[in-house]
Nucleic acid binder design. Structure first.
Lengths: 343, 343
DNA sequence: ATGAAAGCGCTAACAA
DNA sequence: TTGTTAGCGCTTTCAT
């Protein structure tokens, strides 16, 4: 005996009214008399009626569900960003369905398909590291489905975007390293297909140039944002004839990798070599020495991404994609504060 | 001009067949002739037909969606567990909808309602820290909806459960501390409503008793699993007349808090005071000194939780809840290896 | 082997 | 103000 949920029909039968009347009353349409409406509302509550969103989805052709694709749940940045997305979405009556691409292009396209088949109302996405083809997203635009990119975005897709000012963030932290007396600053870069990699690289270069420091190719190596790439590239740096006196890593993970290598070589941070990252993951404050880094408003990035999504839903065809650029702020910790300079 | 998706009806019209025939052929029912079936399959592919799961849900009364409620996305344990859940669910054709309770009872009940209203096929849950009333979950059983609890479980709910052997894990790590020469081992405990808190506490007590060490009430303080509670409780420990020579924290977060306090007091870890946690978060290997801890198979826990869910779906009414207890393993790092004892 | 008809729970034109 | 009818896309008896 399956105790199925109360439906609009049950209420209609009980009250000897038509389902239409019930439906209208429940949704507060104006053409139902006050007493009838009250009666229906009371009865619905008494019978513990809950509308079936599946049926509503079928007729309205929208699910109130947002598909979200992120590279990985285990990157703290995304954990926080999802929280922000969910909060804003939830307040607007939307559910989210989150999938992780595991940095794989194939998995990303696959989940794009799965989510669309599940009839989500649109997508909020942060690109996989290896994604360089964007056809699967362009197809969204063709169907005029909302799409918002955040953090890992690219130029090739016409969609609303949420990013931080990567250029400025990188510029500031490298300026800081220079002010601390560093003159040979190396950079662990990220995959060139990601806009943020290029912009952080440019901020780094700009800061060097403005201070009259040379931009040396040997001091720039491209990694894949992982701890492992941080350790590997740092080893390379240390093999150079003149090794760097500071390293600016594209992200905190790479910086942690660098930190491991430096420590294992017996180098003192920051006295022998200073270190800085990007994002300000919670761990950055805990490692030793605590990591100087560029803080991003991770939760807020998620909230804004969701908000842009909702705007797009409401704007309909006339909606014009926008790009929101948020500010970062420099967090100076022990890994960059050379004792020799402390006055 | 809305370019709506191809439907079964479109195929029927094109082929001059009934929708019934299309539906049957598409689902591989046996009563369709081979040539017709092939024709339908080919046409469907050509027209890029994708079944509408909303319509299927409506008629089948199941959504192939699992609701997941976790305390927080930003706890690394859950990030990894979700990955496991998603992988297994995904392979079985299920989507997941993940919500975070933020450790709040109210948010947890709220999302339970939201997910049920969204007609998920059941729930996979890890309890909020403050949850002590379980009516919202018992209601699931009444509707005979599948429910799986993991990690943060309780006795009061009749459901399948996935946990690790918390008693044994705690027992082993405390034994290890004793072997390292510690004699005054304190414990930062967790909320008593969580089974895992009680079991880790018991493992701790058992290890002490077996070694003939006293179980001292002053050395046991209950926190809330946070870094902050770790710092606070450690400060309390240090105020005691005889302060501990080791601290076993209920989780890594609490251990990190303890580490901060100890360092700020100038105490050397492990020589002045040894430290151990539970879970083996990625950070545990990075902090200094690296944290001795009890590793949990986080990803696998998620996989098994999803598997139990699927079993329950397939088992139907006759399904009997089971509890899977996974093994932990001790990870010994610098925070517990007293130099004085290294031979 | 194929199809007609009813129905899942709801909304929306259009009547009455 | 209330009700009738049709339909969203699909599955499922039950005929033919």
């Amino acid at each position: 005996m399956k105790s199925s949920q109360t439906t609009i029909k049950d209420i209609a039968r009980r009250l000897n009214l038509s389902v239409t009347t019930i439906s209208k009353a429940l949704r507060g349409m104006p053409d139902i008399s006050a007493p009838t409406r009250q009666l229906i509302l009371d009865t619905a509550r008494e019978m513990e009626y809950e509308p079936n969103p599946i049926a509503q989805s079928l007729v309205r052709n929208q699910t109130h569900t947002i598909g979200v694709i992120i590279p990985s749940f285990t990157i703290p940045f995304y954990a926080s960003a999802i929280s922000g997305i969910q909060q804003t979405a939830s307040e607007a009556g939307y559910n989210i369905m989150v999938c992780q691409s595991n940095e794989s292009y194939e998995t990303e396209t696959n989940y794009t398909r799965v989510l669309l088949n599940s009839r989500v109302d649109g997508l909020i996405v942060s690109l996989a590291r290896e994604t360089t083809n964007f056809d699967h997203f362009n197809r969204l635009a063709e169907r005029s489905l909302p799409l918002v990119l955040f953090n890992r975005v690219c130029d090739a897709v016409p969609a609303s975007k949420v990013v931080v000012d990567d250029f400025e963030g990188a510029y500031q932290v490298v300026r800081h390293l220079i002010e601390m007396g560093c003159r040979r600053i190396a950079h662990i870069a990220g995959p060139a297909n990601l806009l943020l990699s290029r912009q952080r690289l440019q901020g780094y270069q700009q800061a060097l140039q403005e201070s009259g420091l040379p931009v040396c190719e040997d001091f720039i190596r491209t990694g894949d944002l992982t701890i492992a790439s941080g350790t590997r590239i740092t080893e390379d740096f240390l093999k150079l004839d003149t090794s760097p006196d500071a390293i600016f890593a594209i992200c905190d993970s790479a910086a942690f990798g660098a930190m491991q290598t430096l420590k294992s070589r017996g180098l003192r941070i920051p006295d022998d070599i200073a270190l800085a990252g990007f994002t300000d993951e919670p761990v950055a404050a805990i490692v030793e020495p605590a990591l100087t880094t560029v803080a991003q408003p991770t939760f807020e990035i998620g909230q804004i991404a969701a908000q842009l999504f909702l705007d797009q839903v409401r704007g309909g065809e006339s909606y014009q994609p926008t790009t929101q650029v948020l500010k970062t702020h420099l967090v100076i910790r022990a890994s960059s504060q050379k004792k020799s300079r402390v006055s």
